[in-house]
């Protein structure tokens, strides 16, 4: 494991923990897109189908369990928690799941490395992760007013993607036969989706003003 991969995993971990702690502590999910969180829960569920079958390392198994546990906990909080669910901005969070799910499923059925159930599900999870942030970005764009924690959540997720690209570049030059076109192209698209958000995030940080996205 190289430093970029580890730093990427840590920012990914930090992003979900920031979100979970925010919801748990202030008992509010205002500004958080349930659609995006449900898509992430599905991403982890379909990607880690073989979690108890294929063993990579203790680190991998623990991280997978944390990602599964935290993503389903966040969804549970927003949908079921007596207090938290009242703060959910249902009328603003209108992005349709199917609009993202269907193209990803079709693409996974057509473009994959092996036509098996496990492999197609894994590929589907890669495609879906690339676009799962869209409902959250639309919600931020709509409400414009972004609290610090939601801003940090999206920033940390974007940082995780950027670090993973550095990790692939590093692995490409240090490992033999390390070519994963599907992961790379989906990963680059995913990182590009954050570019616009990053621009406004750094602007607000530079001018030390509250983060606000243009309408």
């Amino acid at each position: 494991m190289n430093i970029f991969r580890l730093a990427g995993d840590m920012t990914h971990l930090a992003s979900v923990l920031v979100l979970l702690l925010k919801i748990h502590t202030i008992k509010s999910c205002s500004g958080v897109s349930l659609k995006t969180q449900e898509l992430y829960a599905l991403v982890f569920a379909t990607r880690y189908l073989d979690i108890f079958v294929t063993y990579v390392s203790f680190y991998n198994t623990v991280m997978k369990l944390i990602f599964l546990g935290s993503s389903f906990s966040i969804v549970w909080y927003i949908r079921r928690h007596r207090v938290v669910r009242r703060s959910y901005d249902k009328d603003q969070d209108t992005f349709r799941h199917l609009f993202l799910l269907l193209p990803c499923l079709v693409l996974a059925l057509v473009i994959n490395e092996k036509f098996t159930f496990k492999e197609v599900m894994w590929t589907f999870s890669i495609y879906l992760e690339a676009v799962a942030i869209l409902p959250q970005l639309v919600l931020l764009q709509r409400t414009r007013n972004i609290d610090n924690l939601t801003g940090q959540y999206v920033f940390l997720l974007g940082a995780y993607r950027a670090l993973y690209i550095l990790n692939w570049i590093y692995r490409y030059f240090t490992e033999e036969h390390y070519v994963h076109w599907i992961t790379w192209i989906a990963g680059i698209i995913q990182t590009l989706l954050y570019a616009d958000f990053f621009y406004y995030y750094f602007q607000s940080w530079k001018n030390s003003v509250k983060l606000e996205l243009p309408a």
């Binding site: 991969r5 990914h12 390392s57 991998n60 990602f67 092996k114 496990k118 590929t123």
Partner: peptide
Amino acid sequence: GSGSMGHDEL
């Protein structure tokens, strides 16, 4: 490895 096979990333 190809695809999820031998894939060690999260």
